[in-house]
């Protein structure tokens, strides 16, 4: 297989891709409130903590409506996923996909770590190489290994 370009789902969301990615947020110039994604019109960019605690979570068991979803929407192959909010030291809850979707293995308050995960692949065209689109997710700390290949 030829070269596969690894590209983020959007620019400016996270650093890397590398082993220790960080989300890029911003701190409001007047209020000090931290938001994600960064809002350059109201604050300075800051890198957010890589770990935090699971504030709450749920699972996505049915195929999400597409558009806007651009992941797998084939009911035969769709894999349920989980989403949650992780509370970070900066006083912010960040919503993201979780790498674990088994309710028996998720608990409010558990430690989570930021990872980058493959989200979808795009086949090569005549002019462009194949692309692997990556996004951020939170992994239970024991299961985290940075960028997962």
């Amino acid at each position: 297989m030829s070269h596969v370009a690894r590209v983020p789902v959007a620019e400016g969301l996270f650093t890397g891709p590398d082993e220790r990615p960080q989300l890029i947020g911003s701190r409001h110039r007047e209020t000090g409130v931290v938001t994600f994604p960064a809002d350059a019109s109201t604050g300075e960019e800051i890198l957010l903590s890589r770990t935090g605690t699971l504030f709450t979570w749920t699972t996505q068991e049915f195929v999400p409506p597409a558009p806007p979803y651009t992941g797998d929407t084939d009911p035969a192959t769709f894999t349920p996923y989980a989403v949650g909010y992780v509370e970070l030291l900066e006083g912010i809850l960040v919503e993201g996909r979780l790498t674990e979707s088994d309710p028996a293995r998720l608990a409010i308050g558990q430690e989570m770590e930021l990872v980058l995960v493959p989200f979808r692949t795009e086949a090569a065209t005549d002019t462009e190489p194949a692309r692997e689109v990556i996004t951020f997710a939170f992994a239970p700390v024991a299961a985290s290994d940075g960028v997962r290949s």
Partner: peptide, 30 residues
């Protein structure tokens, strides 16, 4: 089916919808 749409109607970025986070039902579950 579940309400679907362009996240831009709420001023949200496109990736939020693309990656499967823009579902109101997540909020109720969470």
């Amino acid at each position: 089916g579940a309400f679907a749409g362009d996240p831009a109607v709420l001023g949200l970025p496109a990736w939020y919808g693309e990656t499967g986070l823009f579902l109101t039902t997540h909020f109720f579950g969470m």
